[in-house]
Computed example of a mutant assay.
Amino acid sequence: MTEVKIVADCAASAESAFAYVDDYQHLPKFINEISAFTPLTEQVEGVGATFDGTIQLGPITLHSTIEIVRHEPGYAIGVKSIKGFEIESTFLFHDRGEEACTIDAIVDYRVPGGLAGKLLGKTIEPFVKLAVKSSTHHLVTQVAEFHATRANA
Rank of each mutant, 00 (worst) to 15 (best):
1 M>F: 04
4 V>H: 03
5 K>E: 14
12 A>I: 00
13 S>N: 03
17 A>Q: 05
19 A>D: 14
23 D>Y: 05
24 Y>G: 10
29 K>R: 05
30 F>M: 15
31 I>Q: 13
35 S>I: 09
37 F>W: 11
39 P>C: 10
42 E>K: 11
44 V>W: 01
47 V>D: 01
48 G>F: 07
48 G>N: 07
49 A>S: 10
50 T>E: 11
57 L>D: 09
58 G>E: 01
60 I>H: 00
60 I>C: 00
63 H>P: 02
64 S>T: 11
68 I>V: 10
69 V>K: 05
70 R>I: 04
71 H>P: 01
72 E>W: 06
72 E>F: 05
73 P>W: 07
74 G>M: 12
75 Y>R: 09
76 A>M: 06
76 A>G: 01
77 I>D: 01
78 G>D: 10
80 K>Q: 12
81 S>E: 05
81 S>L: 06
84 G>A: 02
84 G>H: 04
86 E>D: 14
87 I>A: 10
90 T>E: 14
94 H>A: 14
94 H>R: 10
97 G>F: 12
97 G>N: 13
99 E>A: 13
102 T>W: 10
104 D>V: 10
108 D>Y: 13
111 V>N: 02
112 P>Q: 03
113 G>S: 13
116 A>D: 00
120 L>S: 04
121 G>L: 01
123 T>F: 02
123 T>Y: 01
125 E>Q: 14
125 E>T: 08
126 P>R: 09
128 V>K: 08
130 L>F: 08
130 L>T: 02
132 V>E: 13
135 S>Y: 02
135 S>G: 15
137 H>T: 13
138 H>S: 14
143 V>G: 15
144 A>W: 01
145 E>N: 09
145 E>Y: 04
145 E>A: 15
150 R>H: 13
150 R>G: 03
151 A>V: 05
